[in-house]
Amino acid sequence: MTRIEGESAQAKGADGARRAKRWLESTTRVNAQWVNPDPPAVSKLRFAWPHGGQNFSFDLGGLLRYGEYDGQMFFAESKNYAKPSDLADHYSQFLAQCYVAYLDKPGMCDNFMWLAWSPHSITKWPELMTAEYVREHVIEHRVRVFGVKEKDKAEAMIDPDALSAVASRLWLIVLSEKQENLVISKEHRGVIEDYEARKGD
């Protein structure tokens, strides 16, 4: 990839994160206060692979509000792709990252959201949020997760409770440009937020 292509991909990724933030907050149930690469957000969204000396970061994060999710935290990955392309590979890595993040800071990992502008792995869609699928892709990234190349060694090291926890926290959200516009207006959001603020008086 050339420098110009890299810069273009980075700009597209940043645009996707901003659009994901805007859509999530339009639900009135999300406060996505951490967005990469905003400097105050970077440390909140960064984790370290257990092996290999590399870090990874989620694209955004924050708190859910109201109802059954009130006060829960989330981390999210956004993929601004018009076609499936290599989304399946990115999702595979995302699952391994969720596993690592959960083991590192379980108290902060209430929800893991995948937001994309294209579906992927359609024939496997019912499996994508199962513990067995998470297991498969954690093992796929076993060198960085467990520091071993042998598949059988990685299988012996995996934490089944963490697999189940990650699977139960996954969200798959597929967006479209039209859907981004079919949301509550800023004016009506203000009414809702004012109502919620007054409830505490």
Rank of each mutant, 00 (worst) to 15 (best):
M1Y: 12
M1Q: 09
T2L: 02
R3S: 14
E5R: 11
E7C: 12
D15S: 13
A17W: 04
A17T: 14
R19P: 00
A20D: 01
K21C: 06
R22I: 08
L24H: 06
L24C: 01
T27C: 05
T27Q: 11
T27A: 06
V30D: 13
V30Q: 11
N31L: 09
N31V: 01
P37H: 05
D38P: 02
P39M: 10
P40F: 07
A41L: 11
K44P: 06
K44F: 11
R46F: 07
W49N: 05
P50L: 01
H51E: 11
N55R: 13
F56Y: 08
F58L: 02
F58R: 01
L60G: 07
G61M: 03
G62K: 04
G62Q: 05
R65P: 02
K79G: 04
N80S: 01
A82F: 08
A82L: 14
S85V: 05
D86Q: 15
L87S: 03
D89C: 01
H90D: 13
Y91L: 05
S92K: 02
F94L: 06
F94V: 00
A96I: 01
L103M: 11
K105F: 11
P106G: 12
M108W: 15
C109W: 09
C109R: 06
N111W: 10
N111G: 04
M113A: 08
W114V: 04
S118P: 06
S118A: 15
S121A: 15
P126C: 10
V134L: 07
H137S: 00
H137V: 09
H137Q: 07
V138L: 01
I139V: 13
E140C: 03
V143M: 12
V145H: 07
V145S: 00
V148Q: 05
K151C: 08
K151I: 11
K151P: 03
K151R: 12
D152H: 13
D161Q: 13
L163C: 06
V166E: 12
V166N: 05
A167P: 04
L170P: 00
W171Y: 15
W171V: 07
L172Y: 10
V174I: 14
L175G: 09
E177T: 06
K178V: 04
K178L: 14
E180R: 01
N181M: 10
L182S: 12
V183K: 08
V183R: 08
S185F: 04
S185I: 00
K186R: 13
K186N: 13
D194W: 09
D194N: 14
Y195I: 04
A197Q: 11
A197M: 11
K199E: 09
D201Y: 00
D201M: 03
